[in-house]
Design a protein around this nucleic acid. Structure first.
Length: 427
RNA sequence: GGCGGGGUGGGUGAGUGGUUAAUACCACCGGGCUGUAAACCCGGCGCCCUGACGGGCUACGCAGGUUCGAAUCCUGCCCCCGCCA
């Protein structure tokens, strides 16, 4: 790897790489020098296989990796199968259930599949922590732990906060940054990538490498993407995320629902819209010269195209227009075969003979539109359900093929004939 | 090892024998208004049965007990936090 060459970026590329969607590069000078040297760099990033799904938040860093790969640098992705057992001590994460090796493997596969939709597989090494940690002896763990002090660990915001708040901190949690740091030693990383919340962990890697006689990696921090709620970091567990795997219309819809304040950040972090244009967008939002929605339409379409192709982007845009701006029914919806619907227990005597009544609440529950029967009935009671455009108030109702049922603002079902459908279920 | 404090619904946190499926706030879900934005207004927010009225079941760390009745009292256990050693 010492002889392999990478292309030295042009000034324009250089500026793009080191300023666009970058929070901090430590130390900046060393990174610059390394890029200019033409040496092929080893770009490290780790992930935790307990949470396999990638969100758009993760792609900020991945896009950066991709840019560097285009110059010929190598990405080293670490499957954190050991750190996953500890659980990243960030946030309020509780002790996680230990995953079986099979689960870890499956999660890693899922993750990598999504990872390689952005990162070039040809220029990537996939490494597992177990390659080196399975061999670790207690002596080595002790030696590793002895390099750091409790007060060093308490510099980390999360630990400091919990300590101050008298919340428990497990001793093993201190091991998390240490193991992650050791990964850098094991793969001889030149640069490690992460969100700004990873700063502490990545810096520990520098120290440990130095201790082991290696050149310290540069630390490349990208900004955290704020989630669709407009408040905090996008994360799966907070439910404010857009997944890389979201189908086009979901992705589009979620992007349309972000608060205005996030628009320019999303353009910056998730698209290649040039900086000059970005400035124009930002200004027009601040000065209210354009309806921010116009920018969102472009953003949503652009991002959907990135992940699903131009055609899907166009289709999602058209679908959005149709369903939400014109309030029509979507092209595609979940089909519900009539003969599989739960029938109402008994027909109220008022209804004439021959009319079959169905239990709509139970139907919504069974096809996943509500987490429980009670919840489904609640939705109906609250007027969240309409059939062919008219609100309904009772969950005992007669249904026939062709009816379109809308639940809430954007979930649709269509009743179909018994034989004309396979009964597609919602996920 | 000693002393003290504490474990309540997704989160924070009230509640110290019945009026408590459990105050309040946040989060969340619907509705209204909109640009599927924000803000704001209204409603909801354990599960099951019921078209509805209503009914049933389960729940306040775990397990027992006292009582007509317990999140609230007693016993044992588990866990967390702090101070001292």
């Amino acid at each position: 790897m010492s002889t392999a060459k990478a292309r030295v970026p042009t000034d324009e590329e250089f500026r793009w790489i080191t300023t666009r969607a970058v929070a901090e590069i430590i130390p900046h000078e060393e990174f610059v020098k390394a890029l200019r040297s033409g040496r092929r760099l080893r770009l490290k990033m780790g992930f935790d296989p307990s949470a396999p799904d990638l969100t758009l938040g993760h792609t900020v860093g991945l896009r950066k990796l991709r840019q560097l790969q285009e110059l010929g640098h190598t990405v080293v992705i670490i499957v954190g199968d050991w750190t996953a057992r500890i659980g990243d001590p960030s946030g309020q994460s509780r002790t996680r259930p230990m995953l079986t090796p099979e689960e870890v493997k499956a999660n890693a596969d899922t993750y990598l599949r999504q990872f390689f939709t952005i990162v070039d597989r040809e220029l990537t090494e996939v490494r597992w922590q177990s390659e080196w940690f399975d061999e670790f002896t207690l002596a080595e763990v002790v030696r590793l732990a002895a390099k750091f002090t409790v007060s060093q660990m308490l510099q980390r915001d999360d630990f400091a906060d919990r300590f101050a708040a008298k919340k428990p901190i497990g001793i093993h949690e201190f091991l998390y940054p240490l193991l992650q740091a050791y990964d850098s030693v094991a793969v001889e990383a030149d640069v490690e990538f992460g969100g700004t919340d990873q700063k502490f962990n990545l810096l520990v890697g520098r120290e440990l490498q130095a201790d082991r006689g290696q050149p310290s990696q540069a630390v490349f921090l990208v900004p955290l993407l704020v989630g669709t709620d407009g408040k905090i970091k996008m994360s799966k567990s907070l439910g404010n995320y857009i997944a890389v795997d979201d189908p086009p219309h979901d992705m589009y819809g979620k992007l349309m629902s972000i608060p205005d304040a996030l628009i320019s950040a999303y353009f910056e972090l998730l698209t290649d819209v040039p900086d000059e244009e970005l400035a124009v967008i930002r200004a027009s939002i601040e000065k209210h010269t354009t309806n921010p929605m116009e920018h969102k339409l472009r953003l949503a379409r652009g991002i959907v195209e990135q992940f699903h192709g131009e055609e899907a982007g166009q289709a999602a845009a058209a679908e959005f227009e149709r369903v939400f701006r014109k309030r029509e029914s979507p092209e595609e919806m979940v089909d519900l075969p009539l003969n599989q619907l739960p029938r109402a227990k008994r027909s109220p005597s008022a209804e004439g003979a021959g009319v079959q009544l169905y239990d709509l609440g139970a139907a919504l529950w069974r096809c996943g539109f509500a987490p429980s029967n009670s919840e489904a009935r609640r939705l109906i009671k609250q007027g969240a359900v309409e059939i062919n455009g008219g609100k309904i108030s009772s969950n005992v109702i007669s249904l026939e093929s062709g009816m379109v049922i809308r639940v809430g603002k954007h979930r649709f079902l269509r009743i179909v004939d018994a034989d004309s459908s396979q009964g597609r279920q919602r996920t």
